[in-house]
Design a binder for these strands. Structure first.
Lengths: 135, 135
DNA sequence: TTTCATGCAAATTGTTTGCAAATCG
DNA sequence: CGATTTGCAAACAATTTGCATGAAA
Protein backbone atom coordinates (compact mmCIF):
# COMPACT_ATOMS: atom_id res chain seq x y z
CA UNK A 1 0.00 0.00 0.00
CA UNK A 2 3.10 2.17 0.23
CA UNK A 3 3.69 1.60 -3.44
CA UNK A 4 2.30 4.95 -4.45
CA UNK A 5 4.90 6.73 -2.36
CA UNK A 6 6.25 9.91 -3.79
CA UNK A 7 8.77 12.45 -2.72
CA UNK A 8 7.72 14.66 0.13
CA UNK A 9 9.17 17.70 -1.53
CA UNK A 10 8.02 19.47 -4.63
CA UNK A 11 10.61 21.14 -6.77
CA UNK A 12 9.83 24.67 -7.91
CA UNK A 13 10.31 24.04 -11.59
CA UNK A 14 9.49 26.35 -14.45
CA UNK A 15 6.38 24.40 -15.40
CA UNK A 16 5.15 23.99 -11.89
CA UNK A 17 5.37 27.71 -11.42
CA UNK A 18 3.57 28.30 -14.69
CA UNK A 19 0.66 26.11 -13.63
CA UNK A 20 0.38 27.75 -10.24
CA UNK A 21 0.44 31.19 -11.82
CA UNK A 22 -2.20 30.22 -14.32
CA UNK A 23 -4.37 28.93 -11.51
CA UNK A 24 -3.83 32.18 -9.68
CA UNK A 25 -4.59 34.43 -12.62
CA UNK A 26 -8.17 33.28 -13.05
CA UNK A 27 -10.06 32.60 -9.88
CA UNK A 28 -12.62 30.13 -11.15
CA UNK A 29 -12.71 26.49 -12.10
CA UNK A 30 -10.84 25.25 -15.16
CA UNK A 31 -10.16 21.82 -16.58
CA UNK A 32 -6.64 20.45 -16.85
CA UNK A 33 -6.93 20.63 -20.60
CA UNK A 34 -7.93 24.29 -20.46
CA UNK A 35 -4.84 25.07 -18.47
CA UNK A 36 -2.70 23.06 -20.82
CA UNK A 37 -4.08 24.90 -23.84
CA UNK A 38 -3.66 28.22 -22.16
CA UNK A 39 -0.04 27.58 -21.28
CA UNK A 40 0.62 26.13 -24.69
CA UNK A 41 -0.39 29.34 -26.39
CA UNK A 42 1.75 31.42 -24.07
CA UNK A 43 5.50 31.47 -23.70
CA UNK A 44 5.62 28.56 -21.27
CA UNK A 45 4.24 25.38 -22.79
CA UNK A 46 3.77 22.55 -20.32
CA UNK A 47 3.03 18.95 -21.22
CA UNK A 48 -0.49 17.76 -20.54
CA UNK A 49 0.70 14.92 -18.34
CA UNK A 50 2.69 17.38 -16.29
CA UNK A 51 -0.32 19.61 -15.91
CA UNK A 52 -2.26 16.65 -14.56
CA UNK A 53 0.54 15.58 -12.27
CA UNK A 54 0.99 19.08 -10.94
CA UNK A 55 -2.71 19.64 -10.37
CA UNK A 56 -3.03 16.34 -8.54
CA UNK A 57 -0.12 17.26 -6.35
CA UNK A 58 -1.67 20.61 -5.59
CA UNK A 59 -4.99 19.02 -4.74
CA UNK A 60 -3.18 16.55 -2.54
CA UNK A 61 -1.41 19.29 -0.70
CA UNK A 62 -4.63 21.23 -0.34
CA UNK A 63 -3.62 24.23 -2.39
CA UNK A 64 -6.20 23.54 -5.05
CA UNK A 65 -9.84 22.50 -5.02
CA UNK A 66 -11.09 19.88 -7.43
CA UNK A 67 -14.61 18.98 -8.37
CA UNK A 68 -16.40 17.22 -11.19
CA UNK A 69 -18.49 18.74 -13.91
CA UNK A 70 -21.75 17.07 -14.90
CA UNK A 71 -20.04 15.02 -17.56
CA UNK A 72 -17.26 13.77 -15.35
CA UNK A 73 -14.53 16.20 -16.26
CA UNK A 74 -12.32 17.28 -13.37
CA UNK A 75 -12.10 21.03 -12.83
CA UNK A 76 -9.67 22.80 -10.55
CA UNK A 77 -9.52 26.10 -8.74
CA UNK A 78 -7.02 27.83 -6.54
CA UNK A 79 -8.30 27.22 -3.05
CA UNK A 80 -8.12 30.69 -1.62
CA UNK A 81 -10.59 32.12 -4.09
CA UNK A 82 -13.78 33.14 -2.40
CA UNK A 83 -16.29 30.37 -2.43
CA UNK A 84 -19.33 31.22 -4.47
CA UNK A 85 -21.96 29.62 -6.64
CA UNK A 86 -23.27 30.13 -10.13
CA UNK A 87 -26.59 31.18 -11.50
CA UNK A 88 -26.61 30.01 -15.09
CA UNK A 89 -29.02 30.82 -17.91
CA UNK A 90 -30.13 27.63 -19.61
CA UNK A 91 -30.71 29.42 -22.84
CA UNK A 92 -27.82 31.82 -23.39
CA UNK A 93 -25.37 30.55 -20.84
CA UNK A 94 -24.98 33.86 -19.04
CA UNK A 95 -23.53 33.33 -15.59
CA UNK A 96 -23.85 35.31 -12.41
CA UNK A 97 -21.69 34.56 -9.42
CA UNK A 98 -23.60 34.53 -6.17
CA UNK A 99 -22.60 34.10 -2.58
CA UNK A 100 -24.71 32.32 -0.04
CA UNK A 101 -23.56 32.54 3.55
CA UNK A 102 -26.88 31.04 4.53
CA UNK A 103 -26.32 28.02 2.36
CA UNK A 104 -22.81 27.59 3.66
CA UNK A 105 -24.11 27.53 7.18
CA UNK A 106 -26.96 25.23 6.31
CA UNK A 107 -24.81 22.61 4.62
CA UNK A 108 -22.41 22.72 7.53
CA UNK A 109 -25.25 22.23 9.97
CA UNK A 110 -26.75 19.34 8.03
CA UNK A 111 -23.39 17.64 7.84
CA UNK A 112 -22.76 18.10 11.55
CA UNK A 113 -26.15 16.72 12.31
CA UNK A 114 -25.31 13.53 10.48
CA UNK A 115 -21.82 13.25 11.89
CA UNK A 116 -20.03 14.23 8.70
CA UNK A 117 -16.81 16.20 8.95
CA UNK A 118 -14.59 17.98 6.50
CA UNK A 119 -17.53 19.35 4.60
CA UNK A 120 -17.68 20.82 1.14
CA UNK A 121 -20.47 21.22 -1.36
CA UNK A 122 -21.49 22.12 -4.86
CA UNK A 123 -24.48 24.20 -5.79
CA UNK A 124 -25.56 25.46 -9.18
CA UNK A 125 -28.73 27.32 -9.98
CA UNK A 126 -30.26 27.16 -13.44
CA UNK A 127 -32.94 29.34 -14.96
CA UNK A 128 -33.87 31.50 -17.89
CA UNK A 129 -32.54 35.03 -17.76
CA UNK A 130 -34.74 38.05 -18.48
CA UNK A 131 -33.24 38.79 -21.90
CA UNK A 132 -33.99 35.28 -23.03
CA UNK A 133 -37.55 35.43 -21.71
CA UNK A 134 -38.37 38.60 -23.58
CA UNK A 135 -37.34 37.64 -27.07
CA UNK B 1 -29.75 21.34 -32.97
CA UNK B 2 -32.54 18.81 -33.39
CA UNK B 3 -30.03 16.20 -34.46
CA UNK B 4 -30.14 14.34 -31.18
CA UNK B 5 -33.83 13.74 -31.56
CA UNK B 6 -35.15 10.45 -30.32
CA UNK B 7 -38.50 8.80 -30.16
CA UNK B 8 -40.82 10.26 -27.61
CA UNK B 9 -41.90 6.84 -26.49
CA UNK B 10 -39.91 4.24 -24.64
CA UNK B 11 -40.71 0.64 -25.35
CA UNK B 12 -41.15 -1.57 -22.31
CA UNK B 13 -38.65 -4.19 -23.34
CA UNK B 14 -37.38 -7.09 -21.33
CA UNK B 15 -34.02 -5.45 -20.65
CA UNK B 16 -35.47 -2.08 -19.83
CA UNK B 17 -37.66 -3.71 -17.25
CA UNK B 18 -34.73 -5.62 -15.86
CA UNK B 19 -32.74 -2.45 -15.36
CA UNK B 20 -35.60 -0.64 -13.70
CA UNK B 21 -36.23 -3.56 -11.40
CA UNK B 22 -32.59 -3.75 -10.49
CA UNK B 23 -32.61 -0.06 -9.68
CA UNK B 24 -35.68 -0.58 -7.58
CA UNK B 25 -34.35 -3.55 -5.67
CA UNK B 26 -31.43 -1.75 -4.07
CA UNK B 27 -32.11 1.78 -2.98
CA UNK B 28 -28.62 3.19 -3.10
CA UNK B 29 -26.22 4.41 -5.72
CA UNK B 30 -24.68 1.96 -8.17
CA UNK B 31 -22.51 2.38 -11.22
CA UNK B 32 -23.69 1.30 -14.65
CA UNK B 33 -21.09 -1.42 -14.61
CA UNK B 34 -22.34 -2.73 -11.28
CA UNK B 35 -25.82 -3.01 -12.68
CA UNK B 36 -24.54 -4.69 -15.78
CA UNK B 37 -22.60 -7.25 -13.75
CA UNK B 38 -25.55 -7.86 -11.50
CA UNK B 39 -27.92 -8.51 -14.37
CA UNK B 40 -25.34 -10.59 -16.14
CA UNK B 41 -25.18 -13.02 -13.26
CA UNK B 42 -28.93 -13.28 -13.05
CA UNK B 43 -31.37 -14.69 -15.55
CA UNK B 44 -31.65 -11.51 -17.55
CA UNK B 45 -28.34 -10.43 -19.02
CA UNK B 46 -28.36 -6.98 -20.56
CA UNK B 47 -25.62 -5.50 -22.71
CA UNK B 48 -23.50 -2.84 -21.10
CA UNK B 49 -24.33 -0.32 -23.80
CA UNK B 50 -27.99 -0.93 -23.22
CA UNK B 51 -27.58 -0.41 -19.51
CA UNK B 52 -25.98 2.94 -20.22
CA UNK B 53 -28.62 3.90 -22.74
CA UNK B 54 -31.40 2.93 -20.41
CA UNK B 55 -29.94 4.72 -17.43
CA UNK B 56 -29.41 7.87 -19.44
CA UNK B 57 -32.99 7.73 -20.61
CA UNK B 58 -34.20 7.30 -17.06
CA UNK B 59 -32.11 10.21 -15.86
CA UNK B 60 -33.47 12.27 -18.71
CA UNK B 61 -37.03 11.45 -17.77
CA UNK B 62 -36.34 12.17 -14.14
CA UNK B 63 -36.91 8.68 -12.84
CA UNK B 64 -33.33 8.22 -11.81
CA UNK B 65 -30.78 10.39 -10.05
CA UNK B 66 -27.23 10.52 -11.29
CA UNK B 67 -24.19 11.92 -9.63
CA UNK B 68 -20.43 11.58 -9.91
CA UNK B 69 -18.13 9.80 -7.56
CA UNK B 70 -14.85 11.45 -6.64
CA UNK B 71 -13.05 9.75 -9.47
CA UNK B 72 -15.55 10.69 -12.13
CA UNK B 73 -17.60 7.53 -12.29
CA UNK B 74 -21.33 8.06 -12.79
CA UNK B 75 -23.53 6.44 -10.18
CA UNK B 76 -27.28 6.06 -10.39
CA UNK B 77 -30.16 5.53 -8.06
CA UNK B 78 -33.90 5.35 -8.37
CA UNK B 79 -35.07 8.74 -7.30
CA UNK B 80 -37.80 9.33 -4.84
CA UNK B 81 -40.52 11.72 -5.93
CA UNK B 82 -39.71 14.64 -3.67
CA UNK B 83 -36.90 16.99 -4.55
CA UNK B 84 -34.00 16.47 -2.20
CA UNK B 85 -30.26 16.69 -1.96
CA UNK B 86 -27.49 14.33 -1.02
CA UNK B 87 -24.98 14.24 1.72
CA UNK B 88 -22.29 11.90 0.46
CA UNK B 89 -19.34 10.39 2.27
CA UNK B 90 -16.18 10.94 0.24
CA UNK B 91 -14.59 7.88 1.66
CA UNK B 92 -17.20 5.13 1.76
CA UNK B 93 -19.87 6.61 -0.46
CA UNK B 94 -22.64 6.41 2.13
CA UNK B 95 -25.46 8.76 1.24
CA UNK B 96 -28.09 10.54 3.25
CA UNK B 97 -31.00 12.28 1.62
CA UNK B 98 -31.66 15.70 3.00
CA UNK B 99 -34.34 18.22 2.35
CA UNK B 100 -33.73 21.91 2.43
CA UNK B 101 -36.77 24.14 2.26
CA UNK B 102 -34.51 27.02 3.16
CA UNK B 103 -32.22 26.36 0.26
CA UNK B 104 -35.14 25.99 -2.11
CA UNK B 105 -36.39 29.39 -1.05
CA UNK B 106 -32.98 30.93 -1.19
CA UNK B 107 -32.20 29.77 -4.73
CA UNK B 108 -35.60 30.98 -5.83
CA UNK B 109 -35.00 34.37 -4.26
CA UNK B 110 -31.56 34.75 -5.80
CA UNK B 111 -32.92 33.83 -9.20
CA UNK B 112 -35.80 36.28 -8.89
CA UNK B 113 -33.44 38.98 -7.83
CA UNK B 114 -31.45 38.54 -11.02
CA UNK B 115 -34.48 38.23 -13.24
CA UNK B 116 -34.14 34.51 -13.84
CA UNK B 117 -37.28 32.43 -14.24
CA UNK B 118 -38.02 28.76 -14.44
CA UNK B 119 -35.50 27.93 -11.75
CA UNK B 120 -33.95 24.62 -10.83
CA UNK B 121 -30.76 23.72 -9.04
CA UNK B 122 -28.33 21.05 -7.96
CA UNK B 123 -26.73 20.78 -4.58
CA UNK B 124 -24.51 18.06 -3.20
CA UNK B 125 -22.81 18.04 0.14
CA UNK B 126 -19.62 16.05 0.62
CA UNK B 127 -17.89 15.09 3.81
CA UNK B 128 -16.41 12.25 5.77
CA UNK B 129 -18.91 10.21 7.74
CA UNK B 130 -18.32 9.28 11.35
CA UNK B 131 -17.53 5.62 10.67
CA UNK B 132 -14.82 6.61 8.27
CA UNK B 133 -13.38 9.15 10.68
CA UNK B 134 -13.08 6.62 13.49
CA UNK B 135 -10.88 4.08 11.81
C1' DT C 1 26.05 12.88 -9.32
C1' DT C 2 21.96 11.46 -7.54
C1' DT C 3 17.28 12.23 -7.35
C1' DC C 4 13.07 14.08 -8.86
C1' DA C 5 10.42 16.22 -12.81
C1' DT C 6 9.23 16.41 -17.75
C1' DG C 7 7.54 14.94 -22.21
C1' DC C 8 5.98 11.86 -25.25
C1' DA C 9 3.47 8.17 -26.53
C1' DA C 10 1.24 4.02 -25.24
C1' DA C 11 -2.03 2.07 -21.95
C1' DT C 12 -6.37 2.40 -19.04
C1' DT C 13 -10.99 3.33 -17.94
C1' DG C 14 -15.62 4.85 -18.19
C1' DT C 15 -18.86 5.87 -21.70
C1' DT C 16 -20.73 6.46 -26.40
C1' DT C 17 -21.73 5.08 -31.16
C1' DG C 18 -22.29 2.57 -35.79
C1' DC C 19 -24.61 -0.98 -37.67
C1' DA C 20 -26.86 -5.46 -38.57
C1' DA C 21 -29.99 -8.50 -36.32
C1' DA C 22 -33.82 -9.10 -32.97
C1' DT C 23 -38.09 -7.29 -31.17
C1' DC C 24 -42.27 -4.58 -30.28
C1' DG C 25 -46.65 -2.50 -31.83
C1' DC D 1 -44.51 -4.83 -41.90
C1' DG D 2 -41.99 -0.61 -40.13
C1' DA D 3 -39.85 1.71 -36.38
C1' DT D 4 -37.25 1.11 -32.26
C1' DT D 5 -34.01 -1.42 -29.35
C1' DT D 6 -30.25 -4.53 -28.55
C1' DG D 7 -25.51 -6.32 -28.64
C1' DC D 8 -21.10 -6.26 -30.04
C1' DA D 9 -17.15 -4.22 -31.14
C1' DA D 10 -14.86 -0.17 -32.53
C1' DA D 11 -14.52 4.68 -31.40
C1' DC D 12 -13.78 8.20 -27.89
C1' DA D 13 -12.23 11.41 -24.34
C1' DA D 14 -10.19 12.20 -20.05
C1' DT D 15 -6.62 10.71 -17.25
C1' DT D 16 -2.61 7.85 -15.95
C1' DT D 17 1.74 5.54 -16.57
C1' DG D 18 6.44 3.71 -18.45
C1' DC D 19 10.61 5.20 -19.68
C1' DA D 20 14.50 7.86 -21.51
C1' DT D 21 16.03 12.58 -21.05
C1' DG D 22 16.69 17.09 -18.68
C1' DA D 23 16.93 19.90 -14.63
C1' DA D 24 17.32 20.65 -9.53
C1' DA D 25 19.91 19.76 -5.16
Amino acid sequence: MTSTEGPRTMRPTRQRTAVVEAMTSFGDFRSAQDIHDLLGRGSTPVGLATVYRTLNALVESGEVDMLRTEDGEAIYRRCSAAHHHHLVCRSCGATVEVEGPAVERWTQAIADEHGFADVSHTLEIFGTCSSCRVR
